[in-house]
Structures are given as structure tokens and as C-alpha cells.
Nucleic acid binder design. Structure first.
Lengths: 305, 305
DNA sequence: TCTTATATTAAGAAATACTGGATATATTGA
DNA sequence: TCAATATATCCAGTATTTCTTAATATAAGA
């Protein structure tokens, strides 16, 4: 698969005909036809319905078109980042939703004392997406939980260590947690992060067989679903900061209670290293007794080997 | 850029040397070296530090490696979807965070009456990512707000129409909304969705110059930041369902109050069309007075032209 | 310092991509 | 309904790119 073929496909979709697309990609219509045929052969599916003129994209063709757009965007974004194209003065920051997001408004307000002209572009997404975007240069840094194996261009520094809780809807009888896990509908945290594995591993160790009702990939959404009475689950402490979370029944998960860490991930070589170091300091302060100070060396990098 | 080059780059990163990578990609070491040089020429940057053996990826090289992995994953996911590889019996559903997510637990529980073996894999992400994933076949459907121009392979059916509110921290004096917008720190909703444009357009129409303090791309995060006292913003009704949101000061946004719609987006050709139609029905019922019934024809498709 | 392993260079072979011209097919207008 | 027009495909030849082979250069280890 060649990005030139993908550009041709996108050109056909915008121009309407192979002939006009040929002008756009500086090829002959014959070459355009051959490129599409090569793509169809590689994917083993027809991308165009050819009984009409001009040919019309099939449903599979439309899917491949979306993939093409995504891939070309990745290519262009990476090229822009390598060229050093950036909005001056804006910190591109990412965060997962249900961790330290409640801390960020205070942190950003405090940061303005040090950097009065600092403007923050905050994108909330999933750990895996955020890490990928930091690695690819689309974000300067992101707040994510501990991962097994960050990309080698990145380093992760924890600023929060928090305990895990087994949570159930208000009024649930929790005298026997093992029976609870075996009988109540279980909302499984499904995500490519160590926390999900940590929870699954401990549940396997307990020898229970949870009755899965759903797999959800964000902690905040899981808390919302438990609150709505859907079932029980396991979540970290910081996800339970809302006043009505006090009404959820909760039990320490693991004995001793299991903890996990939240930190900042950034590129090792970054023009915003100083700002990010300060952000880390501010966030650790805001975590009070759960706060973790940054160490002098990039110890997380050492540990992740 | 050719996916064969990207596979080579990934192989070098996992195997450690050009020579061993050559075995993996079934080429000679010379061809591997030439592929990497071609990539470096296209990107106009060095990907490897060559003063050591084996050569070591530069920071730019590591960024390109991440892009390569992302692109190859897109390619593989699309190929798998085209082949029809799917987990049997699981509904791959996406949702934005702060819209109808509160409705989903009830909806999923009700759906189990009709489909007792239905299992739902719920992924919470951003509108643009969700739409892209539905188009590319990674999700069966997603709950997103109205967009200008869905990909042509998709159709969107609204089930909720809700009003917008100007919100401020508890205790804010809101007798003069124009002065408020001109003076208080403003948290701008920045996202590639019509709602963001709708809000920006109305604010321009009002002739105010907001004092931006942050740009955030998720509504739930904006509400969280307003609650924490960071500033004011404009959000839709459903984002204000939590009990402590009652403490926020709010004002109808626009005169008459502006509304926006939430719906389900799905592929026009989908094996789960029936299940998704039922999900739409259940969600519209759960919205009560704000619910929107699905029309007989794919009217949204017509309207989006 | 010498040997070994790996990467690069140069030249040629093999494979692929593209052009040009002819043909096929769909659409449009008379 | 038929002819004209526009567009896509097929086929063969040419141009370009990719890969292999052999020789050379470079780094690392004994």
C-alpha cells in the first residue's frame, strides 16, 4: 500500500471522476485506473461500482477511503511536527478523563502565575491515544496512568499514587465481596493499560468468575454506569471525587489495598520540558498525601526497561 | 511513503539491526538500507544515528516509528474489517462522554430484554474519532452530536434535541450576561463539531470578545473546570445532569434559546442495523420530552447533502 | 591490531509504474 | 433510437524504481 494510491483514491472521491482525479495527482487516467486496480487486488475487494459513469464507491470503498484519509492525516501531522510547525505559546496537553482532570483547572490557574501568557489546549482522550499523540508530536505532554512499555522516545513521571476500590450501587450488601463478584453483573474495564490487567489479574487470583454485562474503556463512564445501577466494578480513588460518589458502596480492592500511579508522559527531547516540569510539581502538590515528587533522574525510563 | 518501508522500520526497531530486520521483511540488508534512506529523504530528516553499530533511532526516528505503527494498525484493522473478522455477538458501540452517556446503562439493560445474549463493548471517545472509527468499521455505531457532513458511508439519526446554557461558578452575578462574557475567563469548546461552531457563531453575533483561558475539547471536562472555578462557558443541557451541577449558575444561551441534537451514527450497510434501530428507539424513549423519533426514510442523509 | 559483523556504495538485473494509443462502455442529446 | 461525447479499461512499450550482488567502509570486540 502506497500513500500515492491513497492520495489518488481521495482525489477521485473529491473530484468525482478518474479523469479529473488524474489531473490532480499529475498522472494519466490510465495510471489512475491501474492504481485503483492494484489497491483492489491487495485488499481483495472492489472499491468501485463500475456499471455507471463515473464509477461509484462501494461501501467497502467508502471504508477504505476513511482509512486513506486517516493515514494521510497521520503522515501530514508527523511531517508537520518534524518540520517544527507549532502554534507559538500554546501548551498542547492531554489528559485521561477520570484521573487527575479535577486537578487540572487549579493546576492551570497556578501555572499562569509562572507563565502569564501561557495558553493551554487541553484534549481529553484515552491513554493509548494520548501516548500515541505525544510520541507523534501532536501533544506536548499528557496525563496518563502507568503503562507497561512507553515508546522509547517518551518518559513518564508519576505525580499521584492512589488506591483501588470495588464499587457497587447504593445499598448493596457487601459483607461477602467474593459472592458479590460471583453474582452481581460486572462492568469490566477494558483498555490497553496496566490498570486493566492489574484488576483482571487480582480478580483471577481471587478465583471469582465475574458475570460480565459490559466492557467499557473509560473509568469515568464505568462510575457513571455503576451509579445508574448497571452493576459493580473496580476503579481508582480519584474517580470517586464527586459528592454523589459518596453514596456508592465501596470496599478496598485487594489485601493490602492495591494502588496505581498517574503521571505525566512527555517526549525526552521537548522544547517545553521546563513548563512540563513545573506542571508536574504543581500537580504533585495538589495531590497532597497521594502526591509523588519527581526524581532527579528519569527513573521511570530506567524502571520501564 | 510505502507501507513496506514502514514495516521495515518497525522490523528494525524490534530486531535491533538492519541485517536481522532484512530477514524479517525478506529483503537483503542493502535493500533495507536503501529503504530507510529513501524514507529519510522524503521526510528530510535523519531517522538513525549511524556513528554506532547497530545504528540507533534518533528522536525524530522514534516519532516516525510511532506514526508507522499507527498507520500499519489502521491498515490491518481496515483489512480485518473488510474480511469480516468480528467478535460474534458483541455490539461495538461508541459514545461521546457528556451527552447521552447517562442514558446508556438504562438503554443497555433494556436492550437485554430483546437480546438476552447481547454483550456491549462500549468505547468513550471524541466525536471525530468515533465517526472515523464507525466509517472504518472499528465500531458498529456511535452516539455523537450533529455534524456538518458525515462520511457518505454513514447515516446519522437524532434521538435527542437539547437546549444550550451559559454556565458560571456558583454565586456568579448573571444580571448582565454580555458583561460577564466580556470580563470573566472563558473556557472555549474547541472541537471539529458543529456545536463548537454554533457557540462561536452566536458569541460573535453577540459582539462580545471572550477572555479565553483554555480551549478544551470535551464538554464534560468543561463542566468540571467551571465547577472548579476556572471560568465560564457554554454547554448543552444533558451535560448538567449531576446533582452538584444544580449549584452552577446558568442562563439560557441565545434568544430564543439555541438547541442542538444528539443521535446515533452507523454505517448504511451494517449487519447490526436491526439492533441499532432498537437502541435508537430505547434511547429516544429515555429522553422523554427531548426525545426525537426516527423517521421512516434516512432523512438525515438527505439533509446532510 | 586483527577479526568479525554490519552498513553502505556502485552497478546491473528485475520488477513496477506510467504513458500512449486503441478499444470498450456509459451517458447525453438530437 | 442512434450518434456523438466523455470516461474507463486494455495492451504494449518505455521509464522509473526497487532489489540483488559484489565490493568497500565502518564499528565493535577479542
Amino acid at each position: 500500500m502506497d500513500t500515492r494510491q491513497l492520495k489518488t483514491l481521495v482525489a477521485i472521491s473529491t473530484q468525482g471522476t478518474f479523469a479529473r482525479a488524474a489531473d490532480i495527482v499529475a498522472l494519466t487516467p490510465s495510471a489512475v485506473s491501474q492504481q485503483i486496480q492494484a489497491l483492489e487486488q491487495e485488499l481483495n475487494t472492489e472499491l468501485f461500482e463500475r456499471t455507471s459513469r463515473p464509477p461509484k464507491l462501494t461501501p467497502h470503498g467508502l471504508q477504505v477511503l476513511e482509512m486513506a484519509k486517516d493515514m494521510l492525516r497521520l503522515e501530514e501531522d508527523t511531517k508537520a511536527s518534524l518540520r517544527g510547525d507549532r502554534i507559538a505559546g500554546t501548551l498542547m496537553l492531554g489528559s485521561v478523563r477520570s484521573s487527575a482532570l479535577n486537578l487540572l483547572p487549579k493546576a492551570i490557574l497556578r501555572m499562569r502565575n509562572l507563565y502569564p501568557d501561557l495558553k493551554t489546549n487541553l484534549r481529553v482522550s484515552l491513554s493509548s491515544t494520548l501516548i500515541s499523540d505525544v510520541a507523534a508530536g501532536r501533544l506536548d505532554a499528557a496525563i496518563v496512568a502507568e503503562h507497561l512499555g512507553f515508546p522509547p522516545a517518551l518518559r513518564w513521571s508519576p505525580f499521584l499514587r492512589e488506591p483501588l476500590w470495588l464499587i457497587a450501587p447504593e445499598g448493596t450488601d457487601i459483607t461477602d465481596p467474593i459472592r458479590l463478584l460471583n453474582s452481581r453483573p460486572y462492568i469490566r474495564f477494558r483498555s490497553a493499560v496496566p490498570l486493566a490487567n492489574l484488576i483482571d489479574t487480582e480478580i483471577s487470583r481471587l478465583g471469582v468468575v465475574p458475570q460480565d454485562i459490559a466492557e467499557i474503556d473509560t473509568i469515568g463512564s464505568i462510575v457513571t454506569c455503576v451509579r445508574q445501577g448497571m452493576g459493580i466494578s473496580v476503579v481508582p480513588h480519584v474517580a470517586l471525587q464527586e459528592p454523589e460518589d459518596d453514596r456508592l458502596t465501596r470496599l478496598p480492592f485487594g489485601s493490602p489495598q492495591i494502588t496505581r500511579q498517574i503521571g505525566i508522559v512527555e517526549r525526552i527531547v521537548s522544547p517545553r520540558g521546563e513548563i512540563i516540569a513545573h506542571m508536574h510539581e504543581v500537580l504533585a502538590e495538589l495531590c497532597r498525601e497521594h502526591g509523588v515528587r519527581r526524581e532527579v533522574s528519569t527513573s521511570a525510563t530506567v524502571m520501564s526497561r
